[in-house]
């Protein structure tokens, strides 16, 4: 695999976006930031960095931003895409683990906080309960039973990129992607990841009430 694209969706991220992209500069990968119609111009945050910058003229949601990044990467001949968060909660040292799993035959690699006890310790208590619920909902809706849900750290090879087209613009994409994996019979592997919960990512992250919205989105998408 020669051409690897890291896709970072960004909505109203400030300095932290610059920090994240800066930290990735030394890696031999292409970096794609998809600004999802932020109110502030995130382009200013990226001045002088090695990065592909795309901007949605209107805010669509994280799922839509990821799909835009993946379409772009495919167009540029990517062999693989990595989904990476803008807010610094993903650890770039985990990236080789994802790429190894792809090399070893997986089509889609998903990060999990539940494979190592040490990673689980970083997850706040209330969040663990929520994640357990989300795992079960994912399993019921998609038929893919994983150890974790919705941490956003993923890798996809070209075959997976060609098969996956997210239509859930908002957060329900994280479950939709599993349905698409199942439908396309892609090979999935989970790898352990460490997620850093900073005060910033906690504040930016999802409130538990939003998980109910995701559930409603999912049910609606099944109906229409």
């Amino acid at each position: 695999m020669d051409s690897i694209f890291i896709v970072i969706p960004s909505y109203n991220e400030g300095e932290v976006l610059r920090d994240t992209v800066s930290s990735l500069q030394s890696l031999p990968y292409e970096i794609v930031v998809v600004d999802d119609g932020s109110k502030v111009d995130s382009r200013l945050m990226l001045a002088g960095l090695r990065v592909h910058y795309l901007r949605h003229p209107l805010n669509l949601g994280q799922g839509a931003a990821l799909q835009t990044g993946m379409d772009y990467a495919l167009e540029k001949g990517a062999d693989a895409v990595i989904h990476f968060d803008a807010d610094g909660q993903h650890d770039l040292n985990d990236i080789p683990t994802f790429l190894n799993a792809l090399e070893n035959g997986a089509d889609v690699v998903l990060g999990s906080r539940f494979l190592r006890a040490s990673d689980l310790e970083h997850v706040p208590k209330g969040k663990r309960l929520l994640l357990r619920g989300a795992k079960i909902i994912n399993g019921i809706f998609t038929g893919i039973w994983l150890t974790d849900a919705h941490n956003g750290f993923r890798a996809l090879n070209r075959k997976a990129l060609e098969a996956i087209d997210l239509t859930e613009n908002r957060m329900a994409h994280a479950t939709e992607i599993l349905s698409l994996i199942k439908a396309a019979k892609l090979k999935v592997q989970e790898v352990p990841v460490t997620i850093r919960y900073t005060e910033y990512s906690q504040a930016k992250g999802q409130k538990w009430t939003n998980s109910i919205n995701i559930l409603i989105d999912l049910i609606l998408s099944k109906l229409f």
Partner: peptide
Amino acid sequence: IRKLAIRDSEI
């Protein structure tokens, strides 16, 4: 919007 974003991408 996706088409526009890709068309107007900057490196």
